[in-house]
Design a protein around this nucleic acid. Sequence first.
DNA 1: CATGACGATTACATCGATGTAAATATCCGG
DNA 2: CCGGATATTTACATCGATGTAATCGTCATG
Lengths: 337, 337
Amino acid sequence: MAARPRIKDVAEYAGVSPKTVSNVINDYEHVSDRTREVVREAIDALGYRVNIAGRQLRQGRTGMITLAVPELDVAYFSELAKHVMAEADRRGQTVLLHQTGGVRERELAALHGFDAQFTDGVILSPLALHPSDLATRDRGLPVVLLGERPAEGSTDHVAIDNVRAAREATEHLLGRGRRRIAVVGGTVRGRQGTDRLRTDGYREALEEAGVPFDSGLVVPVDAYHWKDGARAAAALMDTDPRPDALLCLNDHLALGALRALYERGESVPKDLDVVGFDDIEAAGFSVPSLTTVAPDKKEIARAAVALLLDRIEEPATGPLLDHVVGHELKVRESTGG
Amino acid sequence: MAARPRIKDVAEYAGVSPKTVSNVINDYEHVSDRTREVVREAIDALGYRVNIAGRQLRQGRTGMITLAVPELDVAYFSELAKHVMAEADRRGQTVLLHQTGGVRERELAALHGFDAQFTDGVILSPLALHPSDLATRDRGLPVVLLGERPAEGSTDHVAIDNVRAAREATEHLLGRGRRRIAVVGGTVRGRQGTDRLRTDGYREALEEAGVPFDSGLVVPVDAYHWKDGARAAAALMDTDPRPDALLCLNDHLALGALRALYERGESVPKDLDVVGFDDIEAAGFSVPSLTTVAPDKKEIARAAVALLLDRIEEPATGPLLDHVVGHELKVRESTGG
DNA sequence: CATGACGATTACATCGATGTAAATATCCGG
DNA sequence: CCGGATATTTACATCGATGTAATCGTCATG
């Protein structure tokens, strides 16, 4: 019906100046109790709420941060998003969620594009980004990266110790007598993305155990989805000699692999072991249930939001920070747990 | 380094007035080709991009819409969110994602709260909302509801035909000779929420087949998660006589049930059939794979965005619309497929 | 060549909120 | 009752973009 009330309407209703209303809203200390009361009543009476655009225009901040992840239907990212949104909420911030598809162009858009304008900073989980892309300091948009960062010292950064996590998972398999361990989604090339780091950790474990490295056991995938895991597992079972364990670099790959192994009549963990990463909810309910590396997602979210808000408050302060978050190997049925 | 350029800077650089720059940006027709060119070059040279706050303040629109869902880590909602975001993107809109937790208070916040200010309209998937809460017409914020709506004719609305979908799924089970079919997550009370409608469809099918209805077979759940399905299935297997099929009102419940049945040594589909709703990606990869009702998520997203944008363009126009979207029963191993 | 029509451009006001600085009110000691 | 703090409130400008209406050119026509 009536147009939305402005601060001026409240001021007239309360019989004070617009600025006094603003002072009440922003908890300015030198406002008399009586005035404060009167203004509050006027606000309630008119149902006034601040107009964000006006405030942002004046103050230059939106109270929103961007979270950019590759894909929401990868459960790890939707679970992470949930935690980030909860944490941001606690800190009085709103999250604008962005899906990049893992495409470089769209990861860049999260940093520089249209949407970035809405927000005060970006938490980005990159897949394709190039080190040179991180020359973000130009506009001064604060950025926190999740997972391994593309280059040294370009932005703040939060991740688990991927090398160690992969080493521990591999040691677990070696400890069960497995010797031909395939890495689904791994790579020996490329930049130091998460995939590369985990493959490195795997190699460390092999080396320490004196098991020779066979590059044929490192199989890349198109994406980190069920079907890619299923396809990779099927292909691996056709090789000779066959692997006796699959170290899958996320749980979707692992669950897809479980399905493919089931279809081929292989028994997990009798014939083969399977391990995943991320500990998504499904990992506890598959048949067999899945052994997986569980990162502390809540802590990742907490640290990322805290780091970003610090940067937003004090843009140029202090050295770049690496926050290493804890993880834990959850042993379940797929490795005899 | 340098502060972000404003339209005024571009104007000076190009030697024209700010308004002319604005005209170029907004594709106003009466701008000479030469001026347009010059301005474009100035924009590129300075790296100018419009400030959304300024634009919104002037125009009253943000170009953002809110999508409010109960929980992102319910795969149906993250898959749906992905489609909605893609569709919105295609239409030049940005999506602000909101998680309500299915709590009435937070569903209301999506409609009236702080975040609603950022956006031009809301697509809401309600769980707890009361009919009276939908008196949204006051502020005129356009709203589209997903799933069953709480009341007649309060807003536009997009959903599959839940009654029919449940009836078809039940008929499928009856056709396989099942007679004691439990409804996990169902209810015979309450408003016409999705759970109630699906339970109604189930009863229709029973009636038509002459199978007596047993209210003991309709078991409510706390939430639609794996663990709730597992718990419900376990409890049902302790009843006497036992059910010979589980109609689970979403896939998470069904997958949790599969796990619980596995743990008790029950064989699906030999001893029992299991059916889910939503056709999330995991349904195709579980052991056994899951028969489920697949709603056309892409079409839901397309229709919801289209409906909402129409309302934003023409707030008070036309009657309220119900858009019914197609669905399909995907028969997989859990019912012998 | 005056007139009018129309295209291109610009000056100015405005959206809503708030920072700055100035004005006004209140209070204290002497 | 005054001078000088201190407390409270207000006028005004401003953030960036754009709608409105006015101005300035240009060109065809009678």
